[in-house]
Design a protein around this nucleic acid. Structure first.
Length: 365
DNA sequence: AGGTCTACTTATATCGTAGT
DNA sequence: ACTACGATATAAGTAGACCT
């Protein structure tokens, strides 16, 4: 590059020359000068100072311009992905990127309407073709088969047969954990004040324990048994709690409904829910994306477990609470079994449960 | 004690949508 | 077109596990 491109001469109004000028002017100031001359000199000094200030600002602005230009050219928009399942996928799979994106979205949807936690081996387990979903859920095998059946309902048809590949299982799991993170942040941070009246007790793990342990089923230890969390003696799950469990208000706790409204309608979704004025924002919401018009069983299970979690001392939304030891995945299965048993025996509380949720969450539908 | 790995949370930038 | 509101991807932050 020719040196002539970079003239070594200083700019016309370099700071040095301007400063020299200032010194000259300052030296002209002497007590013997008449007042009007002094005023003129002072105006000149001020003018020079302003000019210097302007030049400085211009230079600074130019520096930031150059910096921005430099960083945009040095760092192209395209950013590397952490792990590239699509690129690593088997060559026989067409459009792996699209498949990954679609599957990830199904994983997110699954967390909203089905189960927010599943057994880790559900993607690798052998499928039992004869499994009947209405059988007893108690055994591990049946529970996992039940989950698998559910997941297959959500997986895109053209992809179901690939469920054991890392492309599909990874994308689905990725979608699930992303949605869980978003949920945890929504409930404990972004919309906490819209769900509960007083956010103060939620500040720390121990303040949550002190304020809510009883509410979520904590049974203190006695000389003969360890303390534990009861799955049914948890007042938060009930619409009305009068000292003991009453199935007629089981899984109807107002917090539970608020939680689901918050998840499907965004951070403000819970406001006005019980006066028929639940906000339905114009923005893209989970409710619109997944076309949710009625309550799913999974939504109820999840809301129950999430209500317990958000009031618990646990610090992260994981399968087994880090402070309480509560197994939230097990809770889901347990409540599901409660409802299915109720339905099988035609119990009113179970039969009417979804209608109860629907008339609050989706009035006039 | 410190490094590295991993899983989870959080902040930010970007995009989309509907109402005005 | 503009604005408000949400969802998502990504990167950065954080804590614990495991190793040396």
């Amino acid at each position: 590059m020719p040196s002539s491109s970079f003239p070594s001469s200083s700019p016309t109004s370099s700071p040095t020359r301007a400063t020299d000028n200032l010194l000259e002017l300052a030296q002209q100031m002497s007590p013997s000068k008449p007042p009007d001359v002094l005023r003129r000199i002072r105006r000149n000094i001020e003018a020079r100072a302003n000019e210097i200030q302007d030049n400085l600002s211009t230079l600074k602005r130019r520096i930031t311009d150059y910096e921005n230009q430099a960083t945009t050219t040095a760092r192209p928009k395209k950013q590397r992905k952490h792990n590239n399942r699509a690129a690593d996928a088997d060559d026989s799979i067409p459009n792996p990127q699209t498949i990954e994106d679609r599957t990830r979205e199904k994983g997110r949807h699954f967390v909203v309407e089905a189960l927010f936690l599943v057994d880790s081996d559900v993607f690798t387990v052998e499928e039992d073709e004869d499994f009947e979903p209405c059988e007893e859920f108690a055994s591990d095998q049946n529970r996992i088969q039940g989950q698998l059946l559910q997941i297959k309902c959500y997986l895109p048809d053209d992809v179901k047969h690939l469920r054991t590949t890392t492309l599909i299982s990874g994308a689905f799991i990725d979608g699930m954990s992303g949605q869980r993170s978003s949920t945890s942040n929504r409930l404990r941070v972004a919309s906490l004040s819209k769900i509960v009246d007083d956010i103060k007790p939620f500040e720390t793990s121990s303040s949550r324990f002190n304020a809510f342990a009883k509410l979520i089923g904590y049974q203190p230890g006695t000389p003969t048994r360890e303390p534990y969390y009861s799955k049914l003696d948890a007042p938060i799950l009930y619409d009305k709690w009068e000292g003991k469990k009453d199935l007629d208000s089981f899984l109807r706790g107002p917090i539970l409904l608020k939680i689901h409204a918050t998840i499907i309608r965004g951070p403000n979704g819970a406001t006005g829910l019980f006066s028929g004025k639940s906000k339905r924002p114009s923005a893209k919401t989970v409710e619109k994306m997944y076309k949710i018009h009625r309550t799913s069983l999974g939504a109820i299970l999840n809301a129950a477990c999430l209500a317990i979690w958000m009031h618990s001392a646990d610090t992260q939304l994981v399968e087994i609470g880090d402070e309480t030891g509560i197994n939230y995945r097990e809770c889901q299965s347990y409540y599901l079994q409660c409802i299915l048993n109720g339905l099988a025996n035609n119990k009113a509380w179970a039969v009417d449960l979804i209608a109860y949720w629907d008339h609050i969450l989706f009035p006039r539908c």
